[in-house]
Design a protein around this nucleic acid. Structure first.
Length: 299
DNA sequence: CGCATTTGACCCTC
DNA sequence: GAGGGTCAAATGCG
């Protein structure tokens, strides 16, 4: 992995961990409120948190793979893999025992993680009284090799131990991004806007909106070896109730204003009021004047 | 009808 | 041979 890739991965890991933290805080606030309308949203948030950590672990797995750092289950040595026959004979049930570098384990109260999986098997295993279910990515036909195993834990049967193998190479992630691209003619009632500029409640967040647009530019400059360059923002940014985070396109002078992804965030999520009308946000500058952009990541 | 799930068979490693 | 991972036909479901 080259240096550029490493920094891109690092940025994504930081972003996903921050997302997870943010969603968890949001969920905590939600659970402190009267339960009426919060349960469905709480479930969605739980999924978002799970997805964030799954993505993070996925990125970390691929990030460290080249450094020969093994993942959770290292029980099978490379030596045993060398004995594996060359694949090609398309016999039924012919398989390679899993290479475990690219695997990671989570324990969750739900089998769901926001991705589309197709079950392809179930087995009773000796190590557990509960069967093990085998899933592969629905988009296997696109060449995606992601699989997972789901099994109830012996210690706490309401919890699932989920072992993931390989990363999604399908367009699942792209689809997820597209879910948050807003068609102005079909505004989701759940949309919130950065323009709301809601003040924090004392018992909730203590936001620290230190990254103004100019500071963000400074950060970008630092990341680009101190270049004194200009920044443009393509399109509009919006945030949804389900995802107060934004992936937007920006252009840097140093790269000839070639569009690249940036990620901005604010902390209005938990303070969302559904009675607010969704409105669009016209670029960074306007948002910045309202003091609603708290952080910006570029990668 | 197309896609997902179930389930027994198959074949691998140990 | 035991245990585990995958395949694929049968079945279910919308």
């Amino acid at each position: 992995m080259n240096n550029e890739d490493f920094h891109a991965k690092r940025g994504k890991v930081i972003m996903e961990l921050s997302k997870g933290k943010q969603f968890a805080t949001w969920l905590q606030n939600l659970l402190q409120q009267p339960a009426d309308d919060g349960l469905g949203l709480a479930q969605q948030l739980a999924l978002q948190i799970l997805r964030s950590f799954t993505e993070t672990l996925s990125e970390m797995g691929s990030c460290f793979e080249s450094a020969q750092i093994t993942a959770v289950d290292c029980s099978i040595s490379d030596e045993s893999l060398k004995k594996t026959p060359v694949p090609g004979a398309k016999r039924r049930g012919c398989y390679k025992r899993r290479k475990t570098l690219d695997s990671w384990v989570i324990v969750s109260s739900t089998k769901e993680d926001g991705c589309a999986w197709r079950k392809y098997g179930q087995k009773a295993v000796m190590s557990s009284t509960y069967p093990r279910c085998y899933f592969r990515c629905t988009h296997k036909h696109e060449g995606c090799k992601a699989t997972k195993q789901v099994q109830r834990t012996k210690e706490n049967p309401i919890m699932y131990q989920i072992t993931y193998f390989n990363h999604h190479t399908c367009t699942e992630k792209l689809r997820h991004l597209h879910d948050h691209i807003v068609d102005p003619d079909h505004v989701d009632p759940n949309l919130i806007s950065f323009e709301m500029n809601i003040q924090p409640k004392p018992d909730q967040y203590s936001p620290n909106p230190t990254s103004t647009i100019s500071q963000a530019k400074e950060e970008i400059k630092e990341d680009n070896v101190g270049m004194d360059q200009d920044l443009v923002v393509f399109g509009e940014a919006k945030s949804t109730l389900n995802d107060p985070w934004q992936d937007i396109e920006i252009g840097l002078e140093s790269s000839g204003y070639k569009p690249e992804w940036a990620h901005i965030e604010n902390e209005v999520g938990p303070r969302f009021d559904q009675s607010h009308e969704a409105t669009s946000l016209h670029g960074f500058e306007e948002a910045n004047e309202l003091g609603d952009i708290d952080y910006l990541w570029c990668f």
